[in-house]
Amino acid sequence: MQERLKELQAEALEKVAQAADLKELNDIRVSYLGKKGPITEVLKGMGKLSPEERPKMGALANEVRDMISGAIEEKQITLEKAAVEKKLAAEKIDVTLPGRPVSEGNHHPLTRIIEEIEDLFIGMGYTVAEGPEVEKDYYNFEALNLPKGHPARDMQDSFYITEEILLRTHTSPVQARTMEARNGKGPVKIICPGKVYRRDNDDATHSHQFTQIEGLVIDENIRLSDLKGTLDVFAKKMFGADREIRLRPSFFPFTEPSVEMDISCKMCGGKGCGTCKGTGWIEILGAGMVHPNVLEMAGYDSKKYTGFAFGMGPERIAMLKYGVDDIRHFYTNDIRFLKQFSVTE
């Protein structure tokens, strides 16, 4: 009996060692250690043994059983590891293949510029005011010190619907409306973005529809120096901290004094080049101190209140900032154009 056990042990261990996969191993387990296995079979003959021999033989049988199951366990770990390795090897992929694209859209470059400017001025305590694109002549012109017959408001330059109604030619009427709504009280701190329309033939530098952002601040003691400081903050944020600004006298009917703001040319650093036509400066926007007639018409006491206003074109800013060479791109919506503005700067 003892020999039979030893034999079984040797035989089982041999088979375990030979087992090629987990299934085979499991078969070995079942066939040797199962209830109907040979060891159980051998132990059935225990009854024939003397009482002294029985525990010995029992111990031996357990020993054999443990040996086999130990071997199986060890083999199982080895085989499992091998199986995992095999599986992993089979699962190998080419990590250099392109990933699944996450298709995200993006906002239009003009929105990008407008929101950037909105956020900048919101940070300085401004709110964003909006108004109708179809406007009354009064708000578009008269309230802005452009009385009827003024050369700057020629019928030829605007899209009129009736004699009194037109497509706004600038976003300034929003300023006039806002001032009127405040009943002559300050402070007013707004910026007004929006679409505007002029009778221009569309070409590389003209568009019959374009956008504008205007700003207006009215309070007691608003100074030209405040305008200069505000525009300096704006220019450095939009065009880079190394940019310088300069103000030049200009003329707008609704401001007095009126100025134009230039920024130093990025391309040449102010030395003069083709981009800045040799001047070292690039014209960005028009501004000025709100004309007393405009204040009075909106119900403000021009002795007490002063204010500044500025207006700029997001198209021009985008063209300068991103080097866009044709204003029509903004309205053609060529996907190859739109997609270029997905990147963060």
Binding site: M124, D219, T230
Partner: peptide, 9 residues
Amino acid sequence: VPKTLPIGA
């Protein structure tokens, strides 16, 4: 002209 920012409420 100096660069200042509006003072007020």
